[in-house]
């Protein structure tokens, strides 16, 4: 399922954490750095990326692709008035949030065919298979959270769900590993499988090659934890809490942390249906987004 090195999924398991605002502004920041960018609204059934760009009646939407009105995803890339930046607007046909397997597979294949330096996927909230699978195909995940416990909790749970899904897909023909994964879901009954370290120990006893493969999957998962709406140093440090949990319990040691400071300009720009970076280029939010974009290169 790994299909491209340039696909970045933007994930915010808890709704309302600023995921779409970050997706739109990050796309602009990257295009300002000379990169060809396509931002894809994959918040299926609750799309609104186009509103940030003020596109009231997009010429094409994801619906056109789902309903087979166009051949490929590249046919529905809408131009923006920004150089190097295209956008695929989301769809809202009934049932799109529960995309069937074949349509999802077709969508995934087409995502890999999009031309650009960066394909940014603005994913929906929650941890349904549709959302998780789009993160799995991406090279890198930007995990958006606010500094509060409910949001941090959802990020951890999402990553854990994603790892289980990834391993279930990878080892679907390896009954012993699948059985171990099932046991690990209930770690009250199986406390030895509470951490990924424990899981790997037992996996090694069953199948050495499989355990090495699992380690590689965990090593290869690159994530950036983005703490949004930071108001204090303590808020900024909340990213470390989730980073520590991911390292200690899930063996994911490749995550880095970035922060975006609370900024009243965000609400003002949203009300005007303009990206913050364009509306207030000197704002704290814009500065932080530009830093994140540069670090992504």
């Amino acid at each position: 399922m790994e299909i491209s090195k340039r696909i970045v999924a933007i994930v915010g398991p808890k709704g309302g954490v600023g995921k779409t605002t970050i997706s739109a502004n990050l796309a602009i920041a990257l295009s300002n750095l000379g990169k060809d960018v396509i931002a894809v609204d994959l918040d299926l059934g609750a799309s609104n990326l186009h509103t940030i760009f003020g596109l009231k009646q997009p010429k094409f939407r994801l619906d056109d692709f789902i309903l087979n009105k166009v051949k490929s995803l590249s046919d529905i890339v809408c131009e923006t008035h920004l150089k190097n930046l295209g956008i695929i607007c989301g769809g809202d046909i009934p049932g799109i949030a529960n995309l069937d397997y074949n349509k999802k597979l077709k969508l995934i294949r087409n995502l890999s065919d999009l031309k650009g330096d960066f394909i940014l996927l603005d994913l929906g909230a929650g941890a349904s298979n549709n959302v998780v699978d789009f993160l799995i195909i991406a090279k890198e995940g930007l995990l958006i959270t606010t500094p509060e416990i409910p949001s941090l909790l959802n990020v951890y749970s999402f990553i854990k769900t994603m790892i289980f899904r990834r391993l279930n897909l990878q080892f679907k023909k390896n009954n012993a590993i699948i059985e171990l994964l099932e046991q690990a879901k209930d770690f009250n009954a199986n406390p030895h499988l509470k951490t990924m370290e424990g899981f790997l120990t037992y996996a090694k006893e069953i199948d050495v090659e499989a355990s090495k493969s699992i380690e590689k999957i965990l090593d290869n998962f690159k994530s950036i934890i983005i703490v949004n709406r930071v108001k204090s140093e303590q808020d900024a440090n909340s990213g470390k809490v989730i980073q520590n949990l991911m390292s200690q319990y899930l063996n994911i040691k490749t995550s880095t942390i970035r922060t975006i400071r609370e900024d009243n300009n965000v609400q003002i720009a949203i009300a005007k249906m303009k990206p913050v970076i364009l509306h207030a280029p000197e704002s704290l939010f814009a500065k932080d987004m530009n830093i994140i974009a540069r670090k992504l290169l």
């Binding site: 108001k231 400071r261 609370e262 300009n265 609400q267 000197e282 704002s283 704290l284």
Partner: peptide, 21 residues
């Protein structure tokens, strides 16, 4: 706008957790 940015910055730097706009 510049004043809003300055206030925003001050809020962060001085560790103010509660702000009503």
């Amino acid at each position: 706008k510049n004043e809003i940015n300055l206030v925003n910055q001050m809020v962060i730097e001085m560790g103010i957790n509660k702000v009503l706009w």
